[in-house]
Computed example of a mutant assay.
Amino acid sequence: MKLLTCPVNGPRNIAEFQYLGPVRAANAEEPGQLIEALFYAENPLGVMREWWRHTPSNTILIAERHTVTDQIVATYLPSQKPA
C-alpha cells in the first residue's frame, strides 16, 4: 500500500487522494502563455511539484514527487512552503 502524507490528517492510503496536475505559473493576461500552461504539460525527470486533494477532508495540498522513482519527497499546504 502506497502512503501519501496529508498535512492535516497525516499518512493516508494514496487511494484517498485525487491528482490535480502539476503546479504551473501562468499569466492570464498573456493568452499564449495561458494556452501553453493549460494544454502543454511538461514531463521532466526529477522532482516535480503537483497539486493533490485529500478527498475525505477536501484538503488541497502540494506534493513534491520524484518522477523517476515515484518517491514522495514532501507534502505541504499551499500557504506553507517547507523550510
Rank of each mutant, 00 (worst) to 15 (best):
M1Y: 11
M1E: 10
K2W: 08
K2S: 05
L3S: 05
L4A: 01
C6K: 01
V8H: 00
G10M: 07
P11K: 02
N13Y: 03
A15I: 06
F17H: 02
F17A: 13
Y19C: 04
Y19W: 12
L20K: 12
G21H: 08
P22E: 12
P22Q: 12
R24F: 07
R24S: 08
R24A: 05
N27A: 14
A28F: 14
E29N: 14
E29I: 09
P31S: 10
P31H: 05
G32A: 14
Q33L: 05
Q33A: 12
E36C: 06
L38Y: 12
F39V: 07
E42W: 11
G46S: 03
G46C: 01
G46M: 01
V47T: 11
M48Q: 07
M48H: 06
R49V: 01
E50A: 06
E50K: 03
W51D: 00
W52L: 09
R53L: 11
H54C: 04
T55S: 06
P56N: 12
S57K: 00
N58S: 14
T59Y: 02
I60G: 03
L61E: 06
I62V: 15
E64A: 15
R65C: 13
R65F: 09
T69E: 11
D70T: 12
I72G: 05
I72N: 04
V73Y: 04
V73W: 05
T75G: 02
T75D: 05
T75S: 10
Y76H: 15
Y76L: 04
Y76S: 12
S79I: 13
Q80L: 07
